[in-house]
Amino acid sequence: MKEIKENQKQAKKPYARPVLKQIALRPEEAVLGNCKTAGISGPVSTGNCAPGGPCSTQGS
């Protein structure tokens, strides 16, 4: 028993001060708010963008 306690002592990790780490969120990517690819089958046959023009709402 004493030996086990000794081993547990040795295995104990040294104290590490907690560190606050920020992970960036990108809401514009996470909420699927925009078209993913330009003009497929949406209204007026050109997706959700103006006919013939660049997609105004393309996103990730």
Partner: peptide, 27 residues
């Protein structure tokens, strides 16, 4: 319930169902 800020918004109905509403500035 939620506004994506672009193409869609989500609503909660009285029947506990959901409605997704899609609109685009072009239309």
């Amino acid at each position: 319930l939620f506004d994506s800020g672009a193409l869609w918004k989500l609503y909660r109905g009285e029947d506990d169902g959901f409605t997704l509403r899609f609109a685009t500035p072009y239309l």
